[in-house]
Write a protein that binds this DNA or RNA. Structure first.
Length: 801
RNA sequence: GGGGAUGUGGUGGAACUGGUAGACACGCUUGGCUUAGAACCAAGUGCCGCAAGGCGUGGGGGUUCGACUCCCUCCAUCCCUACCA
């Protein structure tokens, strides 16, 4: 009788061996490389099931590729700067630095206990000055390349705490701690010109092996649109308001212009008009987040200023509207209520004219679709497309507009008014900013004195005032800066003298990048931008950082994404202790396909544990006996061999092409279920033992990327001639998979009426006759005449009556 | 508001290219083993129906010999929306 499966001692022993052998420390060699990267975590305290899912996927692929003789690089690090460390510091009186280090230690221990094959020799922490010094240098280089500028921009201001709040910290318009009404406040901030790369970021999406939905999201986010810039002369003044519209064909329907509350004209008018200044004050009581602006009630106020319509000379009112964003386009919107939902709503509310200038089949305004022009003077009767061109041409002739391509993408504001981040390497002299000298980099983040709260750096006199009337920049970088280039730094993480080195060229680009779908736009777009900008500076090669992308779906709990900040995490630790890492990994992979979101439930953890136990009972205490394979296999034996080889083929496809680990596992379960009991007995024949051994060898190999500890342990006891389970991946034999027969599905009018095994060599006519003989088929056809026969080779025949 | 996804038994899911709906598991039911339990083993398990058979992939409509799969429409849920990461 075999001994019981003891996951704890096996996993500890195997992990110890990996560590001792330095098995996963990677070195450049002449094999084909495979850089497999999972998004590094924010060290929030403990791992949760979302992490386990993400990192198991990466580890399965890394281990599979290693067995295929690729030189695999799988590093891990920490996205260690960010808001939660400051919150924890305030709540628990620990410094952000200590809190972060402690969390990293905890989570690293957890990652190790799960048996992930990371190359820990390349570990990174973004909060180390050894990491962020390079980030400060990159920023300087971006500045030298003309990619950095300063501009005023809006933030959420808490007037009680006198701090800037993240969108997440504003709840129903109130500060989450103070409860004070938040105001929009304009402050100077640093921006990076990601828009210089808008066109390339859009175009090169086509060449990426990424999921289509992610490419589409990025495309829509960049938002290239073709339209016209149209100038409206302010009545009685020699000034113009400039708008952008993608629908110049609707220009005869313009009944108002709406300008942003932050537009210079709005501010100018508010100085002498109490109503307007009150309205602008009210507009400040908003949240900066786009979703909130879009959902807020549309409010406006008439400025009493009129502009002149460029084609009709009609006088048109100018309103201030709270829904107009200054950052997008020109901060002026031309209102066409007949053909735009938002404009329609606004015009209805304030009694502005609603004119129809486009006709379609629809009778109800607003009509959003393109159509044929009406009420548009000489353009009547033209299609939207034709009219757009002619109208732009006319505007150009009148010098009142031009054709324009516009992007939705805005420049990247990287300033944060926070302590726990990378200091921005700038010094001000008489308010004029200058980059710090290279020799003064890194600008180290000052340590907090004991028990002091993490206040923004502008309150740290020792840090900002460096004498001689010189002052340091007190803002820190957006943490998206830290995560935009870490994938590249991993390749040279142990090099203190250079940012990147010859290893960088060997490992980049990342062959497979794995992470949550929530990063589909921002993080992935910023990283793509960084790569291109670093290329143009001469620091990196290639156009894109991530060749292939796998976006995993959210792990949900109580209907929302599992995260520390939402307080709905599930800690894997109790499961690792009770069932072992292999079971947890197997369960996570078995429970759903990676791209799908998954509501957490432990309902079938037991099933995964049971399966490994079954595997253990089958293989443990069994030895692989070397047998000559010149057997005259029986039908049943051949059937099992066919199953072994076809399962191997399927698993390869599922691991490599589909990332469909749940179906791969199901196939292996089926294979083990299909072994006849007698093959496992002592008295089984040699040919039966041969078939059983084949199942075991294939199964251990196929499962080892998912459940590496138990498979390696069983392998060492079972196999004698190949020491390491990881040293190869088996090969399937297509000849064995090929079968002489197939199961024919017989339908009558598309409904299944019979199934029968058919020799593959038979002709269609013979198959048809055999099918018609089947009882249930002939009964269903009865006296009816067969109108049509549809035959799908090796699959199905359908009689239409 | 905008953008992107998802929706299949009691539960997680399978069906990869328009061709057997429910693989593989969980749970449950019955039986075996056991002093009892755990564990394990065997059989059953979409719904209605005694059966023959019929119905069935979020709702409604369409295309097709044939639709979970394609088209239209509606509903629900999740993610992102530029300062959570």
């Amino acid at each position: 009788m075999s001994s019981a499966y003891k996951h704890k001692s096996i996993e500890e022993a195997i992990q110890k061996r990996w560590h001792k052998e330095e098995r996963y420390v990677s070195k450049v060699d002449d094999r084909e490389k495979y850089y497999c990267l999972s998004m590094f975590p924010y060290p929030s305290g403990k791992l949760h099931m979302g992490h386990v899912r993400n990192y198991t996927i990466g580890d399965v692929i890394s281990r599979y590729k290693r067995m295929q003789n690729f030189n695999v690089f799988q590093p891990m690090g920490w996205d260690a700067f960010g808001l939660p460390a400051e919150n924890a510091a305030i709540a628990n009186k620990v410094s952000p630095s200590d809190w972060t280090s402690q969390n990293i230690e905890n989570m690293k221990t957890q990652l190790k206990s799960l048996g992930f094959s990371y190359d820990w020799s390349k570990e990174l922490r973004t909060c180390d000055s050894n990491y962020y010094k390079w980030e400060q240098l990159i920023f300087k280089k971006f500045y030298d390349a003309g990619l950095v500028y300063r501009k005023k921009s809006l933030v959420n201001w808490d007037p009680v705490d006198e701090t800037v709040l993240a969108n997440e910290q504003v709840i129903d318009g109130k500060g989450w701690r103070s409860g004070a009404q938040i105001e929009l406040k304009e402050i100077d901030q640093w921006f990076i010109k990601i828009t210089d790369y808008a066109e390339e970021l859009l175009d090169s999406l086509d060449n990426l092996d990424w999921p289509e939905n992610v490419k589409l999201m990025q495309k829509n986010w960049i938002g290239k649109s073709y339209g016209a810039e149209i100038k409206y002369k302010i009545d009685g003044q020699d000034k113009y308001l400039t708008t952008f519209s993608t629908r110049p064909d609707t220009i005869f329907g313009v009944s108002f212009l709406a300008i942003s509350p932050n537009h210079s004209l709005s501010i100018e008018l508010s100085e002498n008009d109490k109503n307007i200044s009150e309205f602008l004050e009210k507009c400040k009581e908003a949240k900066a987040a786009e979703a909130d602006i879009a959902k807020a009630e549309k409010l406006g106020i008439d400025t009493n200023i009129k502009v002149v319509h460029p084609l009709t000379d009609k006088k048109i009112p100018v309103w201030i509207g709270n829904f107009v964003l200054l950052d997008y386009g020109t901060g002026v919107v031309m209102g066409v209520p007949g053909h735009d939902t938002r404009d329609y709503e606004f015009a209805s509310k304030y009694g502005l004219e609603i004119n129809q200038v486009i006709e379609t089949d629809s009778t109800e305004l607003p009509i959003i679709d393109k159509g044929v022009l009406v009420n548009s003077g000489k353009f009547d009767g033209m299609s939207s497309e034709e009219a757009s061109q002619k109208i732009i041409k006319e505007l150009i002739e009148l010098d009142k507009g031009k054709e324009l391509i516009q992007f939705r993408l805005r420049d990247w504001g990287v300033s944060r008014q926070r302590y726990w981040g990378c200091p921005i390497p700038v010094i001000y002299e008489e308010s004029l900013p200058k980059m710090v000298n290279d020799k003064d980099i890194p600008v180290e983040l000052p340590k907090l004195t004991r028990n002091s709260l993490p206040t923004p750096l502008n309150q740290n006199e020792d840090f900002i005032n460096i004498g001689n009337n010189l002052f340091r920049e007190s803002d820190t970088f957006d943490t998206f800066m830290d995560s935009s280039w870490y994938y590249a730094r991993f390749t040279s993480a142990d090099n203190d003298n250079e940012i990147f080195d010859e290893n960088t060229n060997y490992w980049l680009p990342v062959d497979l990048y794995i992470g949550g779908i929530e990063h589909a736009i921002l993080h992935l777009l910023y990283s793509r931008f960084f790569h291109k900008a670093l290329r143009d500076i001469g620091l990196l090669d290639g156009d894109e950082p991530f060749k292939r992308l796998l976006t995993q779906g959210m792990v949900l709990k109580d209907g929302a994404k599992m995260s520390k900040s939402k307080g709905n995490t599930v800690d894997p630790q109790p499961y690792i202790e009770k069932y072992g890492a292999d079971t947890v990994r197997l369960y996570m992979m078995f429970t759903s396909p990676p791209e799908q979101s998954l509501e957490w439930s432990e309902s079938s953890v037991e099933g995964a544990a049971r399966f490994l136990k079954k595997l253990w009972n089958l293989v443990n205490d069994r030895q692989n006996i070397e047998l000559n394979n010149k057997f005259d296999f029986s039908k049943d034996e051949l059937e099992l061999r066919r199953k072994s080889h076809s399962t191997l083929k399927k698993v390869e496809h599922d691991y490599e092409v589909r990332f469909s680990f749940n179906t791969a596992i199901a196939a292996i379960m089926e294979l083990l279920n299909s072994i006849p009991e007698s093959y496992k007995e002592e008295k089984a024949t040699d040919s039966q033992k041969f078939c059983l051994n084949e199942v075991i060898v294939f199964s251990l190999k196929m499962l080892s990327p998912i459940a590496p500890h138990i498979c390696e342990h069983l392998w060492n006891n079972f196999q004698t001639n190949e020491s390491c389970i990881e040293s190869s991946w088996p090969k399937f034999d297509e000849d064995i998979i090929e079968s002489e027969e197939f199961e024919l599905i017989i339908q009558v009018n598309g409904k299944v009426r019979g199934k029968i095994n058919i020799d593959k060599n038979l002709e269609e006519e013979e198959i048809k006759n055999i099918a018609l003989e089947v009882d249930n088929v002939s009964n269903n056809i009865g006296e009816n005449q067969i109108k049509k026969v549809i035959y799908v080779k090796d699959k199905l025949i359908n009689f239409v009556i």
